[in-house]
Structure formats: C-alpha cells, structure tokens
Computed example of a mutant assay.
Amino acid sequence: MKAFFEGIQDLFVNYLFAPYDFFRFMDNWWTANIVNWILFIVVAVAFVYWMLQLKQYNDNGEEDKSISSHSYL
C-alpha cells in the first residue's frame, strides 16, 4: 500500500502540479496568482449569468410559487 500512495504522490507532485512551479518563483504577486484570477473571473461570469437566468424566469412567471409546490412545505 505504501508504494500505491507514493505513486499517487509522484503523479501529483511531479506531473499534475508541475506547471504551478513556474508561477511559484515569479517576483510579481499579480502574475504569480494568474490561475486564481482566471478562476475568479470564470466564477464571476457564471454567477452573473445564473442571476440573469433566475431573473428571466422570475419575470416570465414560470416558477410555481404556491404553498403546495413542495410536499414538505
């Protein structure tokens, strides 16, 4: 079992996370965290899209807001 877990460690440390070693040694904080900024932008765009879709369904009156819409209410 020890070799199995060492194999998983080798996979992640030496192969999958290797591109992050490039960002670790940068002098500029903003470029070193470029992956975080890209992730933040993607999540922010998805959140805005989600909120606009919810507003569209709310404006169209398609959502059932009656008390009996869910059995547990």
Rank of each mutant, 00 (worst) to 15 (best):
S66G: 04
F5A: 06
Y49M: 12
Q53F: 13
W50T: 15
Y49P: 09
M26G: 04
H70D: 10
L39I: 02
N58R: 12
G61M: 05
M26D: 06
D27N: 08
E62N: 08
V35G: 02
I67L: 14
K55P: 07
N28Q: 09
A3P: 05
V43I: 01
F47A: 07
W50C: 14
L73M: 13
P19W: 01
K65L: 11
L11D: 03
L11G: 13
S68G: 15
N33P: 00
Y72L: 14
V13M: 08
W37H: 01
V48L: 08
Q9R: 11
L16G: 05
T31W: 12
A46N: 13
F5G: 09
W30F: 10
S69M: 10
F5P: 10
L16W: 06
Y72G: 04
Y57H: 12
E62W: 10
Y57K: 09
I67N: 14
K65I: 03
D10C: 06
S69L: 12
G61T: 04
A18C: 07
A32K: 01
F12T: 08
F4C: 03
N28V: 04
F23D: 02
A3T: 13
W29I: 04
R24W: 01
Y20H: 11
L11A: 05
E63G: 06
N28T: 08
Q9K: 09
P19M: 09
A18K: 12
G7V: 02
V45M: 11
A44E: 01
A18L: 13
Q53Y: 14
A46E: 09
E6W: 08
Y15K: 07
V13D: 03
I41C: 01
D21N: 12
D27G: 13
F22W: 02
I34Q: 02
N58A: 15
L73P: 08
V35T: 00
M26F: 05
N36E: 00
I8V: 07
A18W: 05
D21W: 13
G7H: 07
V13R: 07
K55I: 13
Q56R: 08
E63W: 13
V45N: 05
V42K: 06
V42I: 00
Y49W: 12
V35L: 00
M26V: 03
W37F: 05
W30H: 04
F47L: 10
A3V: 10
W29Y: 11
Q56A: 15
N60D: 15
N28H: 07
V42S: 01
D10W: 12
H70L: 14
E63Y: 15
F47W: 11
L39P: 00
F47E: 11
D10T: 08
I8H: 02
L73T: 10
I67S: 13
W50L: 13
Y15T: 07
F12K: 03
F40R: 04
M51P: 01
S71F: 15
F22T: 07
L39T: 00
V35W: 00
F17A: 11
V13P: 00
L39C: 01
V13K: 05
N33Y: 01
Y20K: 11
D59M: 10
T31N: 03
V43L: 06
A44N: 03
S66L: 03
D21F: 09
D27M: 05
A46K: 12
S69Y: 13
